[in-house]
Simulated scan of single mutants.
Amino acid sequence: MIQPGIKSRPTYDKLKPDPFAKSNIVVIDAEGSNAYLDMAASASAEFLARTTVLLDRDSAPDSGVADKVTATKVGNFWTFPTLDTLLARLDSVLAISKMGTRLYAAGREPLIGSVVKMAIAHGVSYNSVIKEHRGSLRRRVQCVHCKGYTDNVTTNPVRCAHCGLTLLVRDHYSWRIGAFQGVCIDAENPGEVPEAKVDFA
């Protein structure tokens, strides 16, 4: 059911330090912390000193993650109980950031998408955000019919959490809204819905 060859499907690289950045903002979840730690191992002390790390603690209840990040001697380290509270702080940080600030995001796709969406709202191109995917392939899906979001999607098709339509989860991705697109799978033949399969574990 996955539609191959869709150019908007996100591709990711590895986090790598930008030696020319005047300051750095790194947003991570538990899985993304390993990407940050890998980058920190190759970064200079000066780079780390001018870096701020924001951790979604909801995905990292184990305090060991925070201890490992702190051990890198990062300039600033903040943890947040949920992704929403993290994004609220990121919004205020980006609002006062100056030219030469580099933004990084690592972890699951919903976190990366949310960070890039916030960056775009502040005039930062999605291509300028250094991104690395780590962890689950679960998706955030927007229903193209009711515009509602369904989070942590693992199956295809999936039922929209808002309007109840059964959606084909396409590989079409929008950085602007930070989600994959879901379209009604039985619009032409109501009730003819294929069996759901786990595609995004």
Rank of each mutant, 00 (worst) to 15 (best):
L137S: 10
R176T: 13
V158Y: 00
Y126Q: 06
A105G: 10
V169M: 04
I120K: 01
K147A: 11
W175S: 02
S136P: 09
H162F: 10
V158Q: 04
V141G: 04
E109I: 12
E132V: 10
G113E: 01
G135H: 13
V169A: 02
C146W: 10
L167E: 12
M99H: 04
H172W: 07
T155P: 01
V153F: 04
K131S: 07
A119S: 06
L111I: 12
M118L: 03
R159I: 15
R102W: 00
R159S: 14
W175Y: 07
I177F: 03
D151Q: 14
A106Q: 09
V116N: 00
R139Q: 08
R108F: 02
Y126S: 07
K131A: 05
E109W: 01
D171K: 02
G113N: 04
R102D: 02
I130E: 14
R140Q: 15
H133A: 08
I120Y: 01
W175C: 05
G164M: 10
R176V: 11
R170D: 06
S136Q: 10
K147L: 13
C160D: 08
L103T: 13
Y126N: 08
P157L: 10
A161R: 10
A161T: 13
T154I: 11
I112G: 00
H162C: 11
K117F: 00
R138Q: 15
N127W: 03
A119F: 02
L103I: 15
Q142M: 14
I112K: 00
G123T: 03
R134V: 15
Q142I: 15
L103P: 00
T155M: 05
A106H: 02
L165G: 05
G135D: 14
I177W: 03
Y126D: 08
H122Y: 01
H162M: 12
T101A: 09
C146G: 11
P110T: 03
G100D: 06
H162T: 15
S114D: 01
L165C: 07
R176S: 09
L165P: 03
R170M: 09
R140V: 14
W175N: 06
S114E: 01
T150A: 08
I120W: 00
S174C: 01
R140N: 14
C160I: 12
V124E: 03
D151T: 15
H122S: 03
H162N: 15
R102E: 06
N152R: 12
C143I: 14
I177S: 02
I120V: 07
V169I: 12
S114M: 00
M99S: 11
L165T: 11
V124L: 09
D151H: 13
G135C: 13
L168W: 12
G113V: 05
H162D: 14
V124M: 07
T154K: 05
S114T: 01
I120M: 07
V158D: 01
T154S: 09
S174W: 04
Y149S: 12
G135E: 11
C146F: 11
L137Q: 14
L168C: 06
G107Q: 07
G100S: 06
M118T: 13
K117H: 07
D151I: 10
N127D: 10
D171Y: 08
N152Q: 13
C146N: 09
M99Q: 12
L167T: 09
H145L: 11
R140F: 10
R108I: 13
